[in-house]
Design a protein around this nucleic acid. Structure first.
Length: 289
DNA sequence: GAAGGGCCTTTGAG
DNA sequence: ACTCAAAGGCCCT
């Protein structure tokens, strides 16, 4: 019988679990009842819910210390959001954005799943990316059980490399299917060292990622920010582009590349955080219309 | 070499 | 029924 390990992590820094899990960084967390979210952190399938001042988890195996270490790393509790907020205190154009999204955090993801997520994100939408990713997992692996809830791990490189393009198209990936199969093959056959990028510089890692089919500047920056700790990355998608142009370049022509360099100059290693706030804010504003 | 346009799949909303 | 948009990238000009 699995033991029911329930514990919690004290939260000092601003933290909004729902906003963070539903901000389009990760795509396979699901709400299993009114308060719990089910997903995977590190090697632990678990349930999470937030209570005042703490993050409560339920995991059916493992040691509390190690689970909490994994949670700490996953939610980047080593970053201070207060420092981020303070650094942009003088920018009136950001104050409302920060205020509306307090506690939104970047997540430190496993690179392989992150890569596939954002290859699948191209001209898609968040509900669909979630369905695609979940369909891939259900097709290739068997679920873990936490309490009564099934949680599917994401397939390994070798497991996904066994899928044919046609099979992925049947899951609804569309033209992105060929990118996923090609990338899986390249990594599985050691033609591309994904995990080695952790020690590379931002520029080197970005150039390397962009050599993969289906990975351009935007997707590369997502992977760099979300799983390789390169927080100067600034993914420019249609929401962020619109937001930045409205706020800072009303009457000036800028390309996406211009926006990236401008943001890095302005926000440095906080650019990744600012981008996530702008993205989330613009998306929520749009949803209300 | 930079920039712009067409094309790629599927799904849901209006 | 039809059109549009959705965390873009690739290829051609």
């Amino acid at each position: 019988m699995p033991k029911n390990l329930i514990g919690s992590l004290e939260l000092e820094d601003p933290f909004d679990l729902v906003a963070t899990l539903e901000s389009g960084q990760v795509f396979r967390w699901r709400r299993v009842d009114s308060k719990w979210y089910a997903g995977i952190v590190g090697r632990y399938p678990l349930l999470l819910r937030q209570e005042p001042g703490k993050l409560v988890y339920r995991c059916d195996f493992g040691i509390a210390n190690e689970i909490e270490e994994a949670l700490f790393a996953f939610f980047r509790l080593d970053d201070s959001l207060l420092d981020v907020y303070e650094s942009v205190n003088g920018d009136a154009k950001l104050s409302d954005v920060i205020k509306r999204n307090l506690g939104l955090r970047l997540i430190r993801q496993e690179p392989w799943e992150c890569l596939i997520s954002f290859v699948c994100s191209s001209v898609s939408n968040i509900p669909r990316i979630s369905r695609n990713m979940e369909a891939i997992a259900k097709k290739t692996v068997s679920p873990k059980l936490v309490d009564t809830h099934s949680i599917y791990p994401f397939p390994t490189v070798a497991q996904l490399a066994n899928c044919r393009e046609e099979e992925l198209r049947e899951l609804g990936l569309g033209f992105r299917a060929k990118y996923v199969t090609r990338i899986s093959w390249l990594i599985a056959n050691e033609q591309f060292d994904l995990f080695g990028l952790k020690s590379a510089s931002y520029n080197d890692a970005k150039t390397a990622l962009m050599s993969l089919p289906g990975v351009g500047a935007k997707v590369a920056d997502c992977i760099l920010v979300f799983s390789f700790d390169k927080l100067q990355g600034f993914p420019v998608d249609r929401w962020v582009r619109r937001s930045i142009k409205e706020r800072y370049f009303e009457n000036t022509y800028v390309t996406d590349t211009d926006i990236v360099s401008w943001a890095q100059e302005r926000w440095g290693s906080y650019a990744g955080y600012i981008q996530q706030y702008l993205f989330q804010d613009q998306r929520l504003i749009n949803a209300r219309r």
